[in-house]
Simulated scan of single mutants.
Amino acid sequence: MTTSANGTGYSEFTVPGSPSVMVACDLDRTIIYSANSMALQCSDSSAPALVVAEVYEGVPLSFMTRAAWDVLERLVREAIFVPVTTRTVQQFRRVNIPGRDKGFAVTTNGAVLLHDGVQDPEWTDLIQDSVQANCAPLHEVQDYVLGATKPSAILRGRVAEDIFVYCIVNRDELSADYLEDASGWCQERGWTISLQGRKLYFVPSPVTKEAALAEIRRRHPVDMLVAAGDSRLDAGILQLADLAIRPAHGELNNSTFHLPNLRVTSSSGIVAGEEILQFAASRIPVWREAVVS
């Protein structure tokens, strides 16, 4: 018998005509990690091998474990892999991972759909029309967040692609009262807020990752949707999925977010990203056939 690459004595391949699987993954703090968010809980000598997943101005910025990278390469070959991120298109294109420009990707928290790296104008127009009809204008929210009454805990802010506002904050100084007041103010105007690490997002309600992902599944029906994410902005894609997984860290973990179809990783930090991708890969139907030499 010929021994395969996995050492089992069997070759593995996806069953022709087997159920199709779509894997939708948030990026930051789900499958890619900055140096500050890795949260490695091991000695330096036993740390996992890492691969650079993002470079900014010549400096490595985000990473995956080598094992996670290898699993992602398999997912791109054997499933439909969809990156789903709050990053702008420009920020997303800095992320150099397998499958980045293959098939669909969701950026700008769902305001932009990319197909093979090209923006879908039909989806952009649909989102813009919905925001204009249902939400307070961007400049009103920008003035509220970054104007004269801006709390000192908000260090700086930026408008992302004329869609939403995000701020870098001092978490230690950002009060619960401010977050509660801001949430109520936004809700009355058709906006939502989400705090992720040191970033505070103000996003129009129609701009969601789940709406964009549902559109992709409508255009490309699959038998199973697997989704992963760590923040409140990812909750919708986890609810949309047939199977979901989140890391044991982040905004959803802090609120003990749970669903009947949801698994929580046993690890946290960058190692959880590896566990998430392995979970997704385990959903791909495989037929093992003995190979006789």
Rank of each mutant, 00 (worst) to 15 (best):
N36T: 15
L61R: 08
S20K: 01
M22D: 02
D44T: 11
M64C: 01
L40M: 14
Y33H: 15
I32M: 13
A24I: 12
L40Y: 04
R29C: 05
S43P: 05
L27I: 14
M38R: 11
I32G: 05
S20Y: 01
I32W: 13
S46W: 04
T30K: 03
M64P: 03
S20T: 03
V59E: 00
E54L: 04
S20H: 01
V23F: 04
E57R: 15
A24V: 01
Q41G: 12
A24Q: 01
S43T: 06
A47L: 06
D28L: 03
A53T: 06
E54M: 06
A24C: 03
L50G: 08
G58N: 12
R29P: 02
A47R: 10
P60I: 09
Y33S: 06
G58R: 14
R29V: 01
V51Q: 13
S46A: 07
N36R: 14
A49Y: 09
Y56W: 08
S20P: 02
E54Y: 06
P48R: 07
A53Y: 09
I31V: 15
A47Q: 10
I32A: 13
M38C: 13
A24H: 02
V21W: 00
S62F: 02
D26H: 11
M22V: 00
T30E: 04
M22S: 00
D26R: 07
Y33Q: 11
A35F: 14
V51S: 12
S37H: 15
L27R: 09
A35G: 14
A35W: 15
A49G: 08
V21Q: 00
A35L: 15
F63Y: 10
V59N: 01
Y33I: 14
S37W: 13
C42V: 15
D44N: 08
S34D: 12
M22R: 05
P60Q: 04
C42G: 09
V52S: 05
L50E: 05
M38Q: 12
I32V: 15
P48C: 06
M22G: 00
A47T: 01
E57M: 10
S62D: 04
V23N: 03
